[in-house]
């Protein structure tokens, strides 16, 4: 058995001459929780639908365990999908919904009953067999949809923003539950979401997409700490992105000051994007910082305060548990470790 279960090779897709995906190359490993993350319209759902067989790519190949399945219809693929709006069968009860796939495969009746029961236990829906799906809440319908897909014991489960319609608290709970289910069953999850926090919480691998192009593939920690470009930095968590120039190795000029940094290998005076996370900016007393700025606004965010500090025409978003009142003049310090230098993205 190979280490990789699905390979997307040079996938491109156009809808009515509009390119949606461009040269997607992606290897999905066995048993990993992989998340396709990006803003709406970035092509993440199309990618998932190509894996599921609901769309055919304009160019490129889909391999499943090394076999070309590009033109195989969905019902012949060994994977199952949890749809965005659940897509439960409204004319069937919970039991018949979950048993649908098994009955098609003409499985023994007692075995079907046992498997459905086990699935209902797994998703915490014991005793809901004979309820009509329309009488269930959103969260319960979601569980049934997950059970209906998982009962077929697919090698890969595709999930298209499955928690999008749930409220925040329920979503958080389901995130943990889904992750648990994935680890317990040891199957591959391919998960689509636009919620970066959800992606960071659950994934082994995150694939950040924008405009039909993969921006970065990596572990949540890599993606958060070492974003490859300003788009990823901005999309994963909040970021301050300012124009800068590399004076020489380990020295960068931005916001009217020269900062030490850890990056090298740029041409002298090359223009770059400088990314600084809001929580990495330290506010100190006036006169003690590298930069001097004035607090423009303060918003209480629960755990921290979000402050806007203006300095030399640059507005910095600063997250801190300590509040500086509006109109205070403060010093700003940024440590070399917290400065992320990125090559300028080619403007589209």
């Amino acid at each position: 058995m190979s280490y990789e279960i699905i390979n997307l090779i040079d996938i491109s897709k156009t809808f009515d001459d509009t390119p949606v995906l461009e040269n997607i190359n992606l290897n999905i490993r066995r048993n990993e929780f992989l998340t396709l993350l990006g803003p709406s319209g970035c092509g993440k759902t199309t990618t998932l639908r190509i894996i599921g067989g609901f769309e055919e790519p304009t160019r490129g190949k889909v391999l499943f365990e090394g076999e070309d399945i590009t033109h195989l219809p969905p019902y012949k693929r060994k994977l199952n999908t949890v749809f965005q709006k659940y897509a439960l069968f409204p004319h069937m009860d919970v039991f018949d919904n979950i048993a649908f796939g098994l009955k098609i495969r003409k499985m023994d009746k007692e075995l079907v009953e046992e498997k459905v029961k086990n699935m209902l236990n797994l998703v915490n829906m014991r005793g809901f067999e004979n309820r009509s799906v329309e009488s269930l809440s959103g969260g319960q319908q979601q569980r049934v949809a997950i059970a209906r897909a998982l009962v077929n014991e697919p090698d890969v489960l595709l999930l298209d923003e499955p928690l999008g319609a749930l409220d925040l608290k329920l979503r958080k709970g389901m995130q943990i539950e889904l992750k648990n289910i994935q680890q317990k069953l040891g199957i591959t999850f391919v998960y689509v979401t636009h919620d970066q926090e959800e992606a960071l919480t659950m994934s082994d691998t995150i694939v950040v997409m924008n405009d039909g192009i993969i921006q970065q593939i990596g572990s949540p920690i890599d993606i958060y700490n070492e974003p490859k470009n300003a788009f990823v930095a901005d999309f994963i968590g909040e970021s301050n992105i300012v124009d800068g120039a590399m004076i020489e190795d380990y020295l960068v000029d931005f916001a009217g000051h020269r900062f030490k940094c850890l990056d090298r290998g740029f041409a002298p005076n090359e223009e770059v994007d400088v990314v600084v996370r809001p929580e990495d900016i330290k506010l100190v007393s006036r006169g003690q910082g590298m930069l001097e700025g004035r607090v423009v606004s303060v918003i209480f965010k629960g755990v921290h305060y979000e402050m806007m500090v203006e300095s030399n025409g640059v507005r910095w978003i600063v997250h801190s548990t300590l509040m500086e009142p509006e109109d205070t003049v403060v010093g700003i310090n940024i440590l070399p470790d917290d400065i992320h230098i990125m090559k300028k993205m080619r403007v589209k």
Binding site: P74, N80, F83, F89, I104
Partner: peptide, 14 residues
Amino acid sequence: DKSIIEAAEDLGAD
């Protein structure tokens, strides 16, 4: 709903 038919297809129905 189109996705209901896709769901059936996904679950192995021709």
